[in-house]
């Protein structure tokens, strides 16, 4: 599993990229339940970014239940409790999807285009895992 980070991106902060890349790794099955993640220190050094940046990403992942940070043993992927996470996701992602649909609608983009895009990314991530 690899993370691809754009250090010069103006529209996506680095912590968000780290978070999204790890989630996409879980979605595609490249990261499995119990897989170890590098420590905040190691990942910060490898990417070449501030420890706070990595910490912020890990805190978001922990909040959303994607990872578990054990003080002495390290950080691990948690993909086990899907039902609970899924309920939380449906509850919390409404606003994000609404914003996405608003953007699309204001540009007169047909709903089928969005449907197709969503299908495309589903296929892509599911394809990576197998």
């Amino acid at each position: 599993m690899q993370l691809s980070i754009d250090l010069g991106s103006s529209d996506q902060p680095i912590y968000q990229q780290i978070r999204d890349e790890i989630v996409s790794g879980i979605a595609s099955g490249q990261l499995r339940d119990g897989d170890p993640l590098p420590s905040v220190r190691t990942l910060g050094a490898e990417i070449g970014v501030n420890l706070h940046t990595v910490n912020k990403a890990y805190k978001l992942l922990q909040r959303d239940g994607f990872i578990e940070i054990q003080r002495s043993r390290g950080t691990f992927v948690r993909a086990g409790d899907t039902a609970k996470n899924a309920a939380g996701f449906i509850e919390s992602s409404g606003r994000r999807i609404q914003a996405l649909v608003s953007d699309a609608l204001s540009l007169k983009i047909d709903r089928t285009v969005l449907h197709h895009m969503i299908d495309h990314y589903y296929d892509e991530l599911e394809g990576k895992g197998s």
């Binding site: 690899q2 980070i5 250090l7 010069g8 990261l31 897989d35 170890p36 590098p38 990942l43 390290g74």
Partner: peptide, 16 residues
């Protein structure tokens, strides 16, 4: 590139 970095996700146990 001066912008893009790809890093492997591995536990510290494996790399240190």
């Amino acid at each position: 590139s001066s912008r893009n970095v790809i890093v492997a996700v591995k536990g510290d146990k494996e790399t240190l």
